[in-house]
Amino acid sequence: MSPSFAIWARECKSYLQSNSAWCVFAVTAAITGMLFSLSLRELDNTFEYLPAVVCKQLLLVICLPVSFFSMSLFPEEIESGTLEGLLTTPVSDWNIVIGKFLSSLTMVTLSWLISLLVMPIYLKCAAPPPTWSPLSLAGGLFTLFLSTTVWCAAGCLISLISRHQAIAGVISFAVTLICAVLFSGTFLIFDNQAVIEMTNLPDAARGIADTRVFFASISLTWFFLFCAAHRLQIRDWVVKNN
């Protein structure tokens, strides 16, 4: 078994055993449900727009689980000293970063998947029941997943830069929220098409695939993880302690 997988499994198990993680799942589902029920009232023709609306809302809401699940990735281990033990085992810095990144990605993805489970209930309650295409929803969710990987990689780096969990959480939340607002294409006040088209969720939710979104997400994720691995390599927190 790869060391990254062992780290991933330990982190996920630790999250799932904590009450706070389940609280975050519940809060995420509640906010998503509330926003969704409000948008159902507003939309007249939901056939085309419903998946786009769902994905946009999720993109904004996942800022909460991203900041929660990434804030404790490194500060907790640095504080308790377990990272010192981990870094003297035959595990590379890359393995540690990848393991931790994957654990936060898993938990954030799980949180919006749980939120999605609530959707059928709302759709059944809506009168008249809206019609929508599951395939377009899948397209939107795939783009959402790509965004989640970028947010989690950024959160991983932020948690390594800031030594305190709370600071890491606040910065992650602010950064991901700003990016979500900019990239969701909801707000066109900047009149910057290049930026807005990066994720362009409405297009993805209509089944229009844009390879630029895919490559931009992969590149950004790789960049953030590379920075995190480099940051881990220089053992910056030990220098601060001394």
């Binding site: 062992a6 330990r10 630790s14 055993q17 010192e84 003297t88 085992t89």
Partner: peptide, 29 residues
């Protein structure tokens, strides 16, 4: 790293793990 065993001063261990579980995890690493 594979031929050395290092024990830091603070005895850092994962608090929420059980003893055997922790040893298995470290053996895996």
């Amino acid at each position: 790293r594979s031929i050395c065993g290092y024990m830091p001063e603070k005895t850092p261990l994962y608090e929420n793990m059980r003893v055997s579980e922790y040893l298995k995890y470290m053996a895996r690493l």
